[in-house]
Amino acid sequence: MFSMKKLSRRDFLKSVGLGAAGLTALDAFGGRSAEALLLKKRTEMPPWKLQYAEETPTICCYCGVGCGIIIHTRDGKVIGCQGDPDHPINQGALCPKGQAITDVSFVVAENERRHSMYERPRVRNPRRLTKVLYRAPFATEWEEKSWDWALSEIAKRVKATRDATFERTDADGVTVNRTQAISLLGSATVNTEENYLMQKMMRGIGAVHIDHCARL
């Protein structure tokens, strides 16, 4: 019910390109001129990058303009992106950061050898974090850890710090139910629902140092 919204290729072509009429016209003179025959010799049409690709609309993760982007994926891999032609703000256009959004997950491999047009030379961005990392006191290196371990260890730290510093009342006897020892710097780039949970959790444990980069 809440699955991804997919666009049909036809919708997509209609609004990015020259319209349906242009499409037919272009297709029509494919085999007309002698020159075009030369092209035909090799293949009817140049291969299509988005063959069998899925298109998922997203909103850009960078500035506050809120442009629509279509992410092209195939076999669970990002193979490209494009400004969302239906989006009333950017109408298909994108700036360099928006265009490079694909780099966050998949980058073009430097070795450009490919076995077919279907296969795109894209690999996971090798710099992405894929494991929980832990740095012990005074350590010089990270250690890889499991989620279960990390969540329960963090919970223990939160509890220990909270319990040691929790103020039920202040010097004036006012009920304050707070800890001044735990701080949250939230994010201006994660989803609203995520920020909501973060601040709800932090206010739940009594934290008052809650801020994010809107103040910077």
Partner: peptide, 18 residues
């Protein structure tokens, strides 16, 4: 972007120009 052109799409650079 000839592959786009023959399918009725503008070149990628033109499509993205703000």
């Amino acid at each position: 972007c000839y592959d786009r052109l023959v399918r009725g799409l503008k070149p990628a650079c033109v499509a993205t120009c703000p």
